[in-house]
Design a protein around this nucleic acid. Structure first.
Lengths: 192, 192
DNA sequence: CGAACTATAGGACGATCGTCCTAACCTGCC
DNA sequence: GGCAGGTTAGGACGATCGTCCTATAGTTCG
């Protein structure tokens, strides 16, 4: 099955890119890890490694967004949903022995100023999360401007906390970030 | 002058590592950018690229810590100092055309689980900032536990905001993060 | 059956990687 | 002046990189 091979390559790329980075991950290591044929790499991704990177970032981005969506659906209160979102991130981190933090951040930092296509894919990913969060906060009654700022800060806090947690091999930064962000959201809700 | 060459190599490595990442930066590009002799690379860094990485991270870490220290010295109020710290980061980002965000974050994500020596150097860097911030918050009257959590969240917010700002080529995430963190600090001060 | 298309197989290719080596150069001290 | 140490010069070395190619196997439809 062709789709199976392609999808497996993208999924493996997402995992390796977030663990080792974009530059340090090669085609050969990728096809070895994915168990996919080395000969079809360029066939499935005629755009080369850059195309693979864009698709891997898109897949990771969609996964994080889906997790947020599910938290919002499960928890009627926005602050609770955000808390749950951070908990999912912490769970993924520990379950992977601190290998899988954010599927976008590593690639984003590596390619922000040097590989335009990848930089844009990462920027889009971050925007999609912040946008979804913004609408949720607006629906919770926050003024649009405050909702946007708070959503932006929430995404930043998640990313930074994931970075610290991965570096320290300790999920405490995620817990601290979640607690503080929840406080800010509750405060903003009361003020509106 | 020997020290001059070595120091220039480390400073250039710090800049290139944070722009392109650790894996994507090679010795040859480094000595070209630094204008230092290619033949002395291994002479000054017998530990190889890994040693260069550790020293570059240490230099970057010291720079960020020095900036925080200066903000704390200049502003008597902790919240004001943190605000100024974020402003310095934003200034560095725009002055470098969004190339220089955090000198540690890129390397940290790339090497957290794969290059122990570098991973530890990055963890130490983050800890040094959080520790300094914690003592400042304790001196401002916060209970130790709350000070630690807040310091951790502040560092995470700075890192995450730098990531978003670099990706979006927009310093607004840094401003939003600063504002929210300052709010949290002021609130904690009032509660104590 | 056989033609048309997609996927796999496996490797060639030049470029670049990090490491390491030897010869030359410089500077200061006997 | 001569000699020892640290520094620079420049490149060799094998490994690995991303890209691209031809040949084979599998599938789809006439």
């Amino acid at each position: 099955m062709a789709l199976d091979t392609r999808a497996r390559m993208i999924a493996t790329a997402m995992r390796l890119f977030q663990r080792d980075g974009y530059a340090a991950t090669g085609w050969r290591g990728l096809v070895d890890a994915a168990g996919t044929p080395w000969g079809s790499a360029h066939h499935h991704f005629p755009g080369g490694k850059e195309q693979l990177g864009v698709e891997a970032v898109a897949l990771g981005s969609a996964g994080v967004l889906a997790a947020l969506e599910e938290c919002l659906a499960r928890k009627p209160d926005v602050a609770d949903a955000v808390q749950a979102w951070f908990a999912v991130a912490a769970e993924n981190l520990t379950a992977s022995q601190y290998e899988c933090g954010c599927p976008v951040a590593t690639v984003a930092l590596e390619t922000a100023t040097t590989v335009p296509a990848l930089g844009e894919a990462c920027a889009t990913a971050f925007h999609s999360w912040a946008d979804r969060l913004t609408t949720a906060l607006v629906e919770a009654g926050l003024p649009k401007r405050r909702a946007g700022d708070l959503a932006c800060h929430t995404v930043a806090a998640l990313e930074g906390a994931l970075l610290l947690a991965r570096s320290w091999r300790d999920i405490r930064p995620l817990q601290a970030a979640a607690q503080n962000v929840v406080t800010l959201i509750r405060m903003a809700q009361e003020a509106s």
